[in-house]
Design a binder for these strands. Sequence first.
DNA 1: AATGAATGAGTGTTCATTCAT
DNA 2: CATGAATGAACACTCATTCAT
Lengths: 206, 206, 206, 206
Amino acid sequence: MTVAVDTSSGRRAQTKLANRLAILDAAREVFGEMGFEAATVRDIIRRTNLSVGAFYNYYRSKDEVFAALADDGARRFRPILRAVAAEANDFESYLRAAIRSYFDFLKVEQEVWRLTRPGGESVGHVRNTPEIIAVFDEVRSVFADAMERGLAPKVDLDYLAAGCIAVAREIGDRMMERRPVEVEPAVEFVVRLIIGGVGALPRSEF
Amino acid sequence: MTVAVDTSSGRRAQTKLANRLAILDAAREVFGEMGFEAATVRDIIRRTNLSVGAFYNYYRSKDEVFAALADDGARRFRPILRAVAAEANDFESYLRAAIRSYFDFLKVEQEVWRLTRPGGESVGHVRNTPEIIAVFDEVRSVFADAMERGLAPKVDLDYLAAGCIAVAREIGDRMMERRPVEVEPAVEFVVRLIIGGVGALPRSEF
Amino acid sequence: MTVAVDTSSGRRAQTKLANRLAILDAAREVFGEMGFEAATVRDIIRRTNLSVGAFYNYYRSKDEVFAALADDGARRFRPILRAVAAEANDFESYLRAAIRSYFDFLKVEQEVWRLTRPGGESVGHVRNTPEIIAVFDEVRSVFADAMERGLAPKVDLDYLAAGCIAVAREIGDRMMERRPVEVEPAVEFVVRLIIGGVGALPRSEF
Amino acid sequence: MTVAVDTSSGRRAQTKLANRLAILDAAREVFGEMGFEAATVRDIIRRTNLSVGAFYNYYRSKDEVFAALADDGARRFRPILRAVAAEANDFESYLRAAIRSYFDFLKVEQEVWRLTRPGGESVGHVRNTPEIIAVFDEVRSVFADAMERGLAPKVDLDYLAAGCIAVAREIGDRMMERRPVEVEPAVEFVVRLIIGGVGALPRSEF
DNA sequence: AATGAATGAGTGTTCATTCAT
DNA sequence: CATGAATGAACACTCATTCAT
């Protein structure tokens, strides 16, 4: 005999949202721990009150949660980046604040970015996520803006944004592997490297 | 009784070598296109005249080809790096020659480094390959040497080596995506960024 | 939220049980016909309405069905043996009833014991099943008891139990190969052989 | 370059025989250690100076070596059995000598009989070997002879031979598992059990 | 004959996804 | 909507056997 106990009290929409988020959170953990390919849908729902079937009510596929996760991470980081940009008066202080935000973010949500970072192995999954590209564009546009306003010399913008992101990412990883995890020295390292480097960069017509 | 003494220059030995290389090449492509986890052994042998069984005659497992591939790439790049280091008189010219070697190498064998790049998702596979670590150590030791000899300021060595490698890789990738692929501007960009950045780096007691 | 409380008497539960038994039955046949090693999971599910995947929903591995099968056979035979022991007044009548039970059991479920018989090639699989050992111990303890009570002479208990089981099995098998299958003569043969033999056995200090 | 060194000195036939025996010996060990199914042709030739290809020059298949092995074991045991039968004046002394021969044989060549024993798991392989059946017939005919000559009562001959072989086998196994391995008590146990049992057997018209 | 690389069907097992309930 | 059993293609890997040398 199967007894159905309904505790929803009509708050269907809320439950749906909660489930969606529960899946997202579980997926974040699981993908972070085992990587996309190794993680199974069951690994995800196991950390949830839901069933396999329910998973497919919320996301059409494992790929889709992954994309949603990437979106989510990027969506949460972007406003931080914008706020930082709004407050900064010069390129260096912007950069410092941005990098620090990222490293703090890393310390809290290590896994998200481990995954959603471009250049990862599973190129197809990681590099092409729309919101990932958006973050890249965000950084790029801040750099472009800085150039416009004369705060930074005119250089190859794509190379610069890509290079800066690469350094920030790599040093961020190394930082996370050290014990204790010290954000400030890492921030300082990256900022000086970039600022110093940018000053020496060949001017470009881009 | 008949004893066969093979001096390893017969047709058989040649075929074996050719097959070994064919598998390696196919694996390079496949891993490069789909990543280690997603790539299947069948994907690899499909680009070959061989059978599944033959794959296992040459490599004991999918993991082993991967390692062999990383070894192979690193093994071929390391001597270049050493030669360059031997010829250079100062840090900048060393760096420029090294980066140029790498970018030339990239143009020829794009896929190798696509794979062996640290920071990939499957950390276990990519970052810990012995020869990969060796290349990292190679670069690191040249940097350490430069510091010793006063050619570069004393900074956090691991961060520096990691950061430089990350920039070189990232810009290398971007370079490869542009049409036409122009090595010189990319080299110049990276060298200036690093040299300028290094000069501005916070001194460390490491 | 909807909570499902399953009291295990629904259609689903029934189907699950049926499938579990179907697999067990198929496995009994297949292992009986080809032996454990030679039998494939696919051989088993082919005699079923299920898919390969379903097999693994019910049993975690090929080994596990095997163990379940042995357990099942032994579990069903043990109570019979105990009941018989409880009813018998002397050793011979116990033995006769036990052997008859076994031979009747054989007639119905020939294959079970084909498999669980010690002395098979895959020793690890067959001889060490916990329930098999339990049956052996069962018989052994009845013999020990008979000795205690002076109903049987004190002899090497392990040899005796092992020898009796071996004879019962072997004659049981031969009986099953004859047409028609006649239980009574076979029972009589085994009982007389054992009773007569036991009387002639060398006394031991065990 | 491949150099062929021929050391056969024209004694081709000898070498062929030696190889045949080498394979047989290796197979005996390997099958004994891992069982027929688990053993691979490579496992066998690894313990030989030969190549996989050579294996197939001497035996057409893995199955064929197995059969040859069983034949070989049986062929070597049969004369012993016959000699024993020729020397014995009564049934009991025949039986004792036969069992002792078997147990001694066991101690020396444990593996052979582990495998070639009927009732093993891989029924198809083991029970139907022609020479195995021959051993059974051998024992059976001695029993028949004993009956003819009035040394043993007339009983169901097949059951008797089968039962005796089963007991001998089982007790032999148990004996081999004890430390130290003591042949005499085991022989005595089996002989008494059988002799005593036979005396009590129901007479049959077979 | 001997060799050992090549073959490919076959193994146990996994897992994204579907669908009857 | 939720459930979880069912599905079956796919995977890494093995191995008896063949065959060019």
